[in-house]
């Protein structure tokens, strides 16, 4: 099954993290191929201040263009998009982003579940969802939605996570396709490229 999954084409990789998630990204991003054949969407729980330092920090680790999403941005191939602080990030059928300032979900805004579910709805089996370190239950429902729509689901190997609770929660509740440490995660994402 995994073999078949890998042969399918991938349009979007959505990566969600909470406590400890940023550190993983800072290791993964520099190791990715600079020209990607898909789009990466990053959702991190962050303190709700409107500073742009996170965008700059991620951009400093990769030559792939990184952009904090503005309302109605079009998803471009080969780019990394970051969910802005204090908004939920959704994806429209016409492959543009929408922002939503509604109640927090799992005590979080942006919520990983919201973006994962929305991406699953639009991208179906061409979506890959990766859940990183965190001390929250966010992301589990989202991975379940991705799985249900035929996408590939990955959880960070809990032993390698600064906060193992979040990936463990997903592993306990969803039949995730892969449980990967950081080097394997890097190889996996690079192998999606074509």
């Amino acid at each position: 099954m995994a073999e078949n999954s890998l042969k399918r084409s991938c349009d979007v990789v959505v990566i969600g993290g909470s406590t400890g998630g940023l550190d993983v990204l800072l290791k993964v991003l520099p190791a990715l191929k600079p020209t990607l054949s898909f789009t990466i969407i990053v959702v991190l729980h962050r303190k709700n201040s409107a500073d742009s330092t996170l965008e700059a920090l991620l951009a400093s680790r990769t030559s792939i263009p990184v952009r904090e999403v503005e309302d109605k941005d079009v998803l471009a191939v080969g780019h990394i998009y970051l969910a802005p602080a204090d908004y939920h990030l959704l994806i429209e059928a016409d492959k543009t982003f929408s922002l939503d300032y509604s109640e927090k979900v799992n005590y979080s805004r942006p919520s990983l579940d919201v973006t994962f579910e929305s991406a699953a709805d639009v991208y179906g089996d061409t979506l890959v969802g990766i859940l990183l370190s965190g001390a929250n239950t966010d992301g589990t429902k989202g991975l379940a939605a991705i799985k249900k729509e035929g996408g590939i689901t990955i959880a960070q190997k809990p032993e390698t996570a600064q906060a193992p609770f979040m990936p463990q929660q997903a592993i306990d509740n969803v039949a995730v396709d892969f449980i990967l440490d950081i080097p394997d995660m890097i190889s996996f994402i690079n192998a999606l490229n074509n």
């Binding site: 959704l90 994806i91 429209e92 059928a93 929408s98 939503d100 929305s118 639009v122």
Partner: peptide, 8 residues
Amino acid sequence: SRASLKRR
């Protein structure tokens, strides 16, 4: 925006 409306 349809995605947000649908979610609501």
